[in-house]
Design a protein around this nucleic acid. Structure first.
Lengths: 208, 208
DNA sequence: TAGATTGTTAATCGATTAACAATC
DNA sequence: TAGATTGTTAATCGATTAACAATC
């Protein structure tokens, strides 16, 4: 394993490129230039080339990139070649919406189980939500048994850290955190924090 | 207006500080040091002080910051002193969840109306969702008439740009975009892009 | 005055952009 | 060969961190 030295932002953008390439592929485009791919992803061409340089050489000078080859390469790097199992913790408003959200699956992820502390939410069955919803007490064991490496947290702030600790203890390596809580985890665990209130809050400044 | 020169990331963090200050205020803490406030927001003290330096001087050397004074100052800067009206476009899975999400209101924002292209969603009434859901055809006029300056987009990718154009034409100055679409807008309009699929997608890399 | 903590300047770090040589 | 476009190096830019003088 020598996948150490790629900047976080580059990894994020690789995921953008991947999605754009999928679209080109569906449109049966065989080859794209850095110009075309970059513009479809909303970045500048040198940015794209720099990002790709971090992970290898995929293009042909004078020609561009093979859509197929590049897409496969990025899939491999991001670990999307096989469907990745993910658990979701917190089936409130947002959690339930994420459960129904199709975008994750299209990207190569599958929420295989959800967890909640509220018996009312736990009662929801596979039929209702599309996945089993279990009590949060079972979270740690489930993660260990199924070897789950990724989790989505959509619980209230007060529960965030506890859930994160449980996940980390059980072996999860990456967390997408929608709770407002600032999570303390070991450096080996990666966290993407999506703070909805802060996203909107900071926009007020620009709206005048 | 000379609110030009504050870095985007600083504005974002101001919003974090604001929320932490609210908590300190509720706990009846009068004064915090940059050390305390920074740690509660998940940043380092010099970062906090640098951020604040962009917008003014609020602390007392040797003592720290008055929770009340600093909270009020940041509220003013972010424009949160009065409840900000926001429109939401797209009442699918995610849009509906955002509509019910309480975090925005707590932050000083109120979704005053929602819009959708699907007559099924449009039928939803104030009672069901808490806010009126109108047909997207009425979006531009509504925004103009109510002087709305902020919008949340939660429509499918194919509709993103069209909705953005409508909003910008109607005078919106800041958009929180949850659609995967890369939106082209004038420089005067600020966009925060929350790309759920890409957030999760990039995490795959770190999960091993 | 002594201790503490801010505000600010300087140093570091990393990321973006520009430019161009390599090469298909 | 000539035109095009990559991969890469160098220059720029901005943001973070460290350090410390100002000052309560």
């Amino acid at each position: 394993m020598e996948k150490i030295d790629i900047p976080r932002k580059t990894v994020y953008r690789l995921s953008l490129y991947q999605r754009c390439l999928q679209r080109f592929f569906e449109q049966e485009v065989d080859t794209v230039s850095s110009e075309e791919l970059a513009s479809s992803a909303g970045v500048k061409p040198p940015q794209l080339r720099k990002d790709l340089a971090h992970v290898g050489q995929f293009g042909t000078r004078g020609l561009g990139y093979s859509v197929r080859t590049l897409a496969d390469a990025i899939s491999g790097i991001l670990g999307l070649s096989v469907l990745q199992p993910v658990v979701l913790v917190g089936v409130g408003n947002l959690g339930a919406a994420l459960l129904r959200y199709g975008g994750f699956r299209r990207e190569g992820y599958e929420i295989i189980s959800a967890f909640d502390a509220d018996p009312l939410h736990v009662k929801s069955t596979t039929e209702e939500m599309g996945v089993p919803v279990l009590h949060v007490d079972a979270l740690g064991d489930y993660v260990k048994q199924h070897g789950v490496r990724m989790a989505i947290i959509a619980v209230p702030e007060s529960a965030g850290q506890l859930v994160a600790d449980t996940l980390v203890d059980a072996g999860v390596g990456a967390i997408l955190n929608f709770s407002p809580a600032v999570l303390n985890v070991p450096d080996s665990v990666e966290i993407n924090h999506v703070d909805l209130a802060a996203e909107l809050g900071s926009l007020g400044f620009f709206a005048n």
